[in-house]
Design a protein around this nucleic acid. Structure first.
Lengths: 333, 333
DNA sequence: CCTTAGCACTCGGTACACTCGACTGCTACC
DNA sequence: GGTAGCAGTCGAGTGTACCGAGTGCTAAGG
């Protein structure tokens, strides 16, 4: 554990480095509020912080830069629990006052909001359908041979799958199949294999069978939706183009993003710094995430992604506030 | 119009510049196949090409670089209509052999395919719902006070909107409302304001009314889906981080992307170079786009976006082939 | 004993001079 | 008209000197 003075010095280094992106020297730290000792003393302490692994020197005769461990200490020992500034708070209030429409649209807009607030890339994972239960199944014909089966689930999501229709089905057969499927699948979960008794009418049964096949088959990848935004803003924060490229590559792999955010869902507000993310190309990045609730249940995750020298207090405040407001908003439905 | 020799020289310059990203000098051009004159003659011709606006010199004593006009001439006078190389052709064949599932999924995957083939960013605009016609409307209750109205359209797309249900509606009322809406809206277009006669039953009418309100209201932005991919690959092609940032910014504005690609829908395979795109931040970019058909109708657009010094023959071939195969694929449904 | 002032030292970044090489434009010759 | 050759231009790369920010250490002071 660090004593109060070392902590203050470390804090000053992190804050200045976040601000300037330049290695910070003892002189600047000595001038920082909360550090009331001379630069010489600061130098001694910084040397000590370096051997303890909180700071690092890019080269002799340069200032110090925080290490992962340094950032970690910084976020773990923030003084106040992080508040949004007035203007941002206003923006959030505005957003949720005007927010309307479908959940999907809202999540996507929420990502935009987060990016605006933090100038970082935003990531929003839509609620997993787990727990949702079928409310209605309907088979609709589009042409003589093609149709769609539409499933409405209790959480308001709608799932659709195309299917080939048997030769010469009538509208009545489709209606009968829809009614039959709705009746027998109501209340069951999509996670389970779906099975239904026969109706007795062969033409209707043919439709039912094909509808079930269409519903059953395609679950190869997690169909969870991920909304990524603000990549342009993020690109600004890095100066090495190579880094930008790598991060974009990661963000394009939905699978990686989902598993990254999903691990964290029951940790509450959480920060992953550099290698803590477990993804090598994100070594120079940090991730601030928080779950949001739907109807009181942990549902999805929102977060921001940026360089390790991001403005943590701001990012934490933004993510925390937005996830809370989003949860409130989604409870009313 | 350029004579044959100038055209050959211009072609050589463009090809080498695309390859090396370095200004190309008369010596290299003289060595190029198809140019059988000395470097001195090339120099004379290049000077002439410069005054005519096809080439430009970054500074005295440097090689030449193509201007927009130069690229334009190059793509307008490609020798053969551009063929994919064997490996890429294989990849495309593979993709469409394995392609399956919903249209949305397929469009998104198609973007990935285009990026793989060209190493550029891909843009796919989903079919506009124009022309699609309502096939089925269904109101489903989720809780005592909330529900969704689901619209299935003739092109297989499904639209959903949440609504508040009046107090104390029964399942029967919902079913009656669904049947009534389906019956009276079948065949009408979503572009029109939707109106329906009363059923006579007040409870059912209340549901019908709310469903119509839910369907009518939210069309603030074009709900056309845009799939953007391969941004990481694109980032590699530019060396100025500022450019990457600007292009990412554009790609994040769905509205801009859609209007960019939509203008072009009835032009067939098309290339927009630099300022031809009409979007200032894309001055250093070029766009290769082609429409694709669904059921023989121009529906959406696919394209790739990259630096003006992209590999045009490759990009044209990829976009052309993929749009054709995609059209074929979507005709069967 | 901890803090601090002072000093010698290190080293990255900038400025400058210089060279090298890849070009060009021009001229004279075939 | 095409070409060889030459003088000239200018960016990129290199070596040197210098400046300044910053360090570590030491010795003096509270």
């Amino acid at each position: 554990m660090l004593d109060e003075r070392k902590a203050a010095i470390l804090r000053a280094v992190v804050e200045e480095y976040i601000d300037t992106a330049q290695p910070v020297g003892s002189g600047h730290v000595a001038k920082a509020p909360g550090v009331d000792v001379s630069s010489a003393t600061v130098r001694n302490e910084m040397a000590s912080l370096e051997t303890e692994g909180y700071l690092r020197q890019p080269h002799t005769s340069a200032g110090r830069v925080p290490t992962e461990k340094g950032y970690r200490f910084f976020v773990d020992h923030l003084r106040q629990p992080a508040r949004l500034n007035a203007q941002s708070a206003e923006e959030v209030r505005d957003f949720f006052a005007r927010a309307h429409g479908e959940v999907e649209q809202m999540l996507s807009d929420t990502g935009r909001l987060l990016s605006n607030l933090t100038n970082l890339a935003s990531v929003v994972v839509a609620p997993a359908p787990a727990g949702a239960v079928i409310r209605s199944v309907q088979v609709v014909g589009l042409s003589s041979s093609a149709g769609v089966v539409v499933v409405v689930q209790s959480d308001g999501t709608v799932d659709k799958h195309t299917l080939d229709l048997p030769e010469g089905v009538s509208v009545e057969h489709l209606a009968a199949a829809s009614a039959h499927l709705s009746l027998h699948l109501d209340g069951t979960s999509r996670d389970m294999p779906l099975r239904v008794l026969r109706t007795g009418d062969p033409a209707t049964d043919a439709v039912v069978e094909r509808a079930l096949a269409a519903l059953g088959s395609p679950q190869p990848i997690d169909p969870e939706h991920v909304y990524v935004g603000g990549t342009a803003r993020m690109a600004q924060a890095f100066d090495a183009i190579e880094t930008v490229r790598e991060v974009l590559g990661i963000l394009e792999q939905q699978f990686v993003v989902v598993s990254l955010l999903r691990d964290v869902i029951d940790r509450g507000l959480y920060v992953a710094i550099g290698t803590e993310t477990g993804v090598a190309p994100l070594a120079e990045c940090a991730l601030v995430v928080a779950p949001y609730d739907v109807e009181g249940e942990r549902a999805g995750t929102i977060g921001v992604l940026g360089p390790t020298r991001m403005n943590y207090p701001q990012a934490l405040a933004a993510v925390a506030v937005v996830s809370r407001r989003l949860s409130d908003r989604l409870v009313e439905g």
